[in-house]
Design a protein around this nucleic acid. Structure first.
Lengths: 395, 395
DNA sequence: ATATTAGTTGAGAGCGCTCTCAAAGATAAG
DNA sequence: CTTATCTTTGAGAGCGCTCTCAACTAATAT
């Protein structure tokens, strides 16, 4: 780039300024450089230059930075001082090229479902993944897709350009999952939520949806409810597992399963409202709603119909996200450790990337039942009966 | 890595397989490679190897890929065929190192405010940014911070390691903004929302909050309301601008500003409820609530108090996010083009990165007034009076 | 005493790309 | 036919790191 085209553009790169061997001159040049950096973008220092400043070779500086043993204390100290003084940080891209590892992981959300941008579940999950990424000095890339062509194109580049070390997949489709493709490319990845196909070959982190649904249903049964409906979801395995937990619990208690009491939504508020409208003619005395968002919709419908919660119908939901404490009455719900799920996924992915894992790992995190007002427990039962590590009373 | 440690680990890297000059042998080797790739991770092809397969040099392949002119049609065709057959994609990291450009941009959310993970505004914004990033083949990195130390550390690495080409900043703090730091480092960046300090030096994309608030307030005034309250926010410039539009409009109509009718929230549902409780003793006949989320909280409080919307109090809000159509009555609200804001930010950032922009650019996108039921317009006015490009009637 | 080992450093060869430069052939102009 | 210009290609020098190898010193074993 010549100086005359676009005078004073903030991109004049200054290199090779440290080639002189006189230490005083070098330090003078460094001050100059610092002054210059106030005006324009100055090229970052390199290992070589730090080496020159510290009077050692590039290799030695690299060793100090990467905590290799076998460096004399004096040299290490000298190099570290220069690094501290200059604020040097190694160029990630060069490092990636040389080490064949970018320290960039991707969070992929293949589904284009409306709920992905609506349900507070995802921000929370992203927060957990982000926090763990920061902690482990990984750069987190986010991949959302707005059409199948876009997904196809972007996935191709993720898999072939070598930029991404590994992936975390969430909200995958049941049909046409992207998992086989990842498996084929031998890309390290962790799925959040139980994969629908070949879970045995896949590393995943999930919460114990069956046990969570069992707790919720058991709670309703123990409170004496008998016509217990469910608003499940049929587009993902979490919904399947929760439905399964519900069915199993009722059967254990000898309560017949009534298909008319089983409805489905898609995690959105509207779908919860819709499902509750389907359920009302069946006159359930309690409903296990498989997400807080759907419970929000369901409760709005009940209020409009003048049906009181929990007096005429009890509600227990799933997630324990902010909406759960903003309803009237506040929701009894199964708390998922969402942020922790994201963190565990990152930790597992790290192990996969460094080949520390030989066989697929399945991490299942426990859920808790949070008892508030929507289930009617306060009116009926002595709450002290519920003292249990998996139950929190927050009436 | 030796073969005997951890047999068949999927990381055996195969290189230099194309060194032979006999074309038939080379193709045979390629088939072998493909078979091998079913079993283990095979090193990606390189420019050099594609060149060998096409019988040209690395430089020529690079030219084909980067659409340089001055390539003979036959050579271009031949190279493209090899690329298509092999599915070759250039290694992004090597490309970044050589070109000093990573094509990675960062989305930074410095604020640790609760609302960031709660207000549906952010998912929508992220969606817009992501969509434009995909479109322009940029990789989007997400930077959320959970503590000041984490922010400090991560920003340092963003600014010094050369991984990130440019940043999009949103939800910046008013106090202790990160903008000066970015300016000092000459990092290309675009702010979403008007920056509080030195906006003249900063590239930003914002929606026209003043005009939006004017439309909302004007609408309420034109419907005959006289005691018009506001739930603003004081932690960011969007709130300032909306308050400003509200005040200006009332003054223009000769309506005295009553400080008791001005309250503040923080975009959360709870804060909206809280503010409405403060407002109720003042008996406003209409309230301009500066976000849908806060309007949600406000309307819950009103319903609990048995105050009917819009019969006893009219509500107009801001955002037009999903909650706006899920309330009863549905919200009259100022629609922000949130996704488009994110897209514009990416487009502007691209220009900044390639130094196509000399002076700071300020893009202000127009908002629309969406008239639904919560303002009482349906009962009072002939809606056809509102035919205007900035007004949508959706009663 | 010498041989061996451990500790400490630098030289230098990559990683897979981009981009400049020069060379060679083709074409147009004199 | 020569000279100038345009088109087309390859060689090769980086980009800023990592990592192997070899060299040298100092400490320990034989």
């Amino acid at each position: 780039m010549s100086l005359d085209n676009g005078m004073f553009r903030p991109l004049i790169h200054v290199t090779q300024i440290f080639l002189t061997t006189d230490l005083k001159v070098r330090y003078a040049l460094y001050s100059l450089l610092r002054a210059l950096s106030k005006v324009c973008k100055v090229k970052n220092l390199t290992l070589e230059e730090i080496g020159k400043l510290a009077g050692v070779s590039r290799a030695t500086v690299s060793r100090v930075i990467n905590d290799y043993p076998y460096i004399s204390p004096e040299v290490r100290e000298r190099v570290q001082r220069v690094i501290a003084e200059t604020g040097y940080q190694p160029n990630m891209i060069a490092r990636s090229l040389a080490s064949d590892r970018s320290n960039i992981i991707g969070l992929v959300i293949p589904s284009q479902a409306y709920a992905v941008f609506t349900d507070p579940y995802f921000p929370r999950l992203i927060q957990g993944v982000s926090q763990a990424s920061n902690q482990y000095k990984l750069t987190l890339s986010l991949f959302l897709f707005h059409s199948r062509e876009e997904e196809d194109f972007t996935m191709k580049s993720i898999l072939n350009t070598g930029l991404i070390d590994g992936l975390i997949i969430t909200a995958d489709r049941k049909e046409d999952s992207i998992i086989p493709r990842l498996l084929r490319h031998h890309m390290p990845f962790v799925v959040i939520g139980r994969p629908d196909t070949t879970p045995e070959k896949v590393n995943f982190v999930d919460t114990d949806n069956v046990a969570g649904a069992r707790m919720a249903t058991e709670h309703l049964v123990s409170l004496g409810y008998e016509r217990i409906g469910i608003i499940a979801t049929d587009e993902n395995t979490a919904g399947d597992d929760r439905l399964h937990g519900y069915v199993a619990t009722l059967e254990e208690h000898g309560i017949a399963i009534d298909d008319k009491l089983i409805t489905y939504g898609d995690f959105s508020v509207q779908s919860g409202a819709q499902a509750m409208k389907e359920l009302m003619p069946e006159q359930p005395d309690a409903v296990f709603v498989c997400s807080d968002s759907m419970a929000l919709g369901a409760m709005t419908v009940l209020r409009e119909a003048g049906i009181s919660v929990p007096d005429e119908i009890a509600i227990v939901s799933f997630d324990d996200l902010p909406p759960a404490t903003q309803t009237e009455p506040r929701l009894t719900t199964v708390r998922q450790p969402i942020s922790q799920t994201g963190q565990m996924a990152v930790e597992l992915l790290r192990k996969l990337i460094s080949s520390d894992v030989d066989h697929p790992v399945h991490t299942i995190l426990p859920n808790q039942l949070i008892i508030r007002s929507s289930c009617g427990a306060a009116q009926i039962k002595n709450l002290h009966d519920y003292i249990d590590k998996n139950v929190v009373i927050d009436v």
